[in-house]
Write a protein that binds this DNA or RNA. Structure first.
Lengths: 214, 214
DNA sequence: CCCTGTGAAAAGGTTCACAGCA
DNA sequence: TGCTGTGAACCTTTTCACAGGG
């Protein structure tokens, strides 16, 4: 029942990285870690890490550091990972299949329990344990698997339609990989990851480096 | 030779989205667009869009709006997309293959010209036009294809090693998809996209919504 | 003495109202 | 009049220095 006060968005975005580092440390048998070490391994600076953790509570021991298992438990709780969130993948092409197979999803409490695709050759079959359904079956699939989150990996032409169907069945969390700006009601949380956008940002800095040299 | 002054990072991150919208508008035959429309279609508000564009230059016409083709040309130039940047994909598993096939990469000037993998069954073969090489061939591959950017889609255990090899051959732009915090020299730009991090952020807000209701 | 937790300052980003040009 | 471009206010995030408990 801890409500964790108010955690800034920038902090929330970094918590998964800290959690990953803590899991790795625990696997290697480390039981205590300083903010300096944890920050270094997580790719941030120490004051930022401490400020981030201070928003969750005071889980460290002055003069010592943080207990790996305890901090791990607390971040896990803050992120709501105590609960498993079943996921449906919409669009079972190359990317969709890669995502459905992504072990990191299941490992972190986001099992992909079903996929949606329009290809009759795929519908009704199961690939790597993931059953493929037609778009018309979305309501049943969502209800049956208690789906909490939808991943969009359809071609761009199909993504807005898929989102509309999902929203109509009550889905309120969507992770979009198709390169298009989707429209959702205000109470639906949509996060978009455009793979080429990342390359374009890298491209910008490459070019800037050349200009700066001249 | 336009150096574009100094463009804030937050603006750079949004330019690809504006560019995408402009390309779509041009495809539908729209030749002029207001900041209000362009912002709406790009998923931002109008003042933010105008402020972003003001960092590139004054490309609009007061009382009228922006010329779609001209603005598209300018953003393209600002992002350095006038040049093609050949890409190598390291780790040719499910995700690597999906990325290598991703049409958005080639369309936006980032052709995937080669892949690297340790699997002897893949090395020496070509999949969907992408030749697969062994890690030891990285220097030759980079030189031969004038590779500018590397994408990491290896298992976590292999990613730091792959990055080290790439950096040694002179690669200075890396897009990492493996869920681990990689270490690179200060002059190498590393961007990381952890797919499960995005789900965890969605999970956080899901949980918060439940708490807020109580 | 060591390392965490935090207030205060600085930097970066967003919003707004409106000046100014077509 | 209409819509862009921008200075100023506001908010968020980061940084820093150090207070304070083990």
């Amino acid at each position: 029942m801890n409500s964790y006060g108010h955690i800034p968005e920038a902090t929330v975005a970094r918590l998964p990285s800290y959690l990953r580092t803590l899991v790795d440390l625990a696997a290697v048998g480390v039981s205590t870690v300083s903010s300096e070490e944890l920050a270094e391994l997580s790719g941030v600076n120490a004051p930022k890490l401490r400020k981030d953790l201070s928003h969750l509570g005071t889980y460290g021991t002055r003069g010592v550091g943080y207990d790996v298992d305890y901090l791990r438990f607390e971040i896990n709780g803050a992120l709501g990972l105590a609960n498993t969130r079943p996921v449906v993948v919409c669009g079972f092409g190359n990317l969709g299949r890669a995502l459905a197979n992504h072990t990191g999803f299941t490992e972190r409490g986001f099992p992909v329990l079903a996929a949606i695709d329009t290809d009759p050759a795929k519908i009704g079959h199961t690939f790597d344990g993931v059953p493929v359904h037609s778009p018309s079956e979305i309501p049943e699939v969502v209800k049956h698997h208690l789906i909490a989150i939808a991943v969009i990996s359809t071609p761009v032409e199909a993504s807005q339609g898929a989102v509309d169907r999902l929203v109509a069945t009550g889905i309120r969390s969507i992770l979009n990989f198709s390169p298009i700006n989707l429209t959702v009601p205000a109470d639906v949380e949509l996060r978009s990851v455009d793979l080429s956008t990342q390359l374009q940002i890298l491209g910008f800095h490459l070019q800037k480096a050349v200009i700066d040299e001249s």
